[in-house]
Structures are given as structure tokens and as C-alpha cells.
Amino acid sequence: MRGLATPTLLGEQVTLREYRDDDRQLVLSVVHDPLIPLMTTVPQTACTTEVQAYIERQRRRASNGDGFQFVVVENALGRAVGQVGITFREQNHERASVGYWIAPQFRGHRYAAGALRTLADWALHSLTVERLELYVEPWNEASCRTAESAGFEREGLLRRWERVGSERRDMYMYSLVRQ
């Protein structure tokens, strides 16, 4: 499904919307985070060109048919606080993985859980997605709680599943399936 457009999704606590040029500050706020650039395509420097290229890549994912990347905006003050996205894992788009990050200064307010619930509800009811998958490092208890609060169930431990920086790491697999 090429040529898709990123919709705006309104949740109880957050709104999910397409990336805009003025989201550079949000991306800049996480370039030096110890994990986000290692696990995502967020640049590891504050280079304006690289940050703009990152934003452009996020915007193209829907039109390329790869998935959807959203900026997470808190509803109360309208501030961009993070990102949540879905990446299709099968050509028919029935299985997809979900990822998210919240900028350090906005963590602890349950924005990730709100974003994950909003995205999952939309994906399972408005798209052809039958199964959403989410991977979390075992030490990341906050992310485990986020996944579970959004209705995801832990299925097991995937040993040496994902490269994070220079090493392969174990990940818990979580899933949420269409009922």
C-alpha cells in the first residue's frame, strides 16, 4: 500500500500527528539520549542536515507504504513530547511492529502509554493489521509497564534479538492481536 497519508489521531491524553519542520527541537532534545539514537534512526549529533533528513524519513514512511511515524503531542498544552510509530512486517500489512520514545524532559507522565493505546486502537480497527508486536529490553521496567498498560501481553524472551549499538541484546516480545 504505497501512497498512504499519515492521519491525525486524537487520543484522550495525546494527539498523534505527522512530523513537521518545526519538530526539529523535539528531535534535537533526544540526539544525546543514551539509548534513543542507538535503537532508532535518530541522529547521534545535533547536525541540522541530519535532523532534517530524519524528519523527512519519518514523513516518507507512509507514502512509501512502510508504516506510519507520528509525533506525540500532549493535549493539555500542545507540546510535542515524543514519537510513536508502526512498521509493517508483512507485505499484506497484517503484522506490524510498534516503537516509541518520549523525550527525557517529558517522561513519567504516561504519554507513551496514551500514544501506544491510541496507535494500537487505530491500527487494529482501521488498518488490515491483525497482530502488533513490541520489543522491550528486560531491564526497562517502565517500558514493560507501558506496553502492559496499553493491553500488550508478554509472550517471551527473544535471546540476542536486536542489535543495540555494538552488541546484540535480549528483548521481551509483547503482542496485541485483533479480537
Rank of each mutant, 00 (worst) to 15 (best):
S149R: 14
A5F: 13
E130L: 10
G108Q: 12
F68A: 07
R154A: 08
S126Q: 13
S126F: 12
W101E: 06
L26T: 01
R107T: 12
T118E: 00
P37E: 06
V51S: 07
A53F: 13
T41Q: 06
G114V: 13
I55K: 02
A120E: 02
N140P: 09
A103H: 03
Y19M: 01
I86Y: 02
V81G: 02
E18A: 15
D22R: 15
C47W: 05
V31C: 02
D66K: 00
C144D: 04
D66G: 00
S126D: 08
T48C: 12
N75F: 02
D121G: 13
N140E: 10
Y172R: 02
E12I: 03
A112L: 05
L9R: 00
L10R: 10
F88D: 06
V71D: 01
C47Q: 07
R61V: 09
Q25N: 13
Q69H: 06
Q44F: 04
W122I: 02
A76D: 11
D170T: 07
V84F: 08
P138R: 08
A147P: 04
H125W: 04
P34M: 10
E94H: 13
S149Q: 14
L176G: 06
T118I: 01
R95C: 11
M1G: 12
Q25D: 15
R79A: 11
M39N: 06
A5L: 14
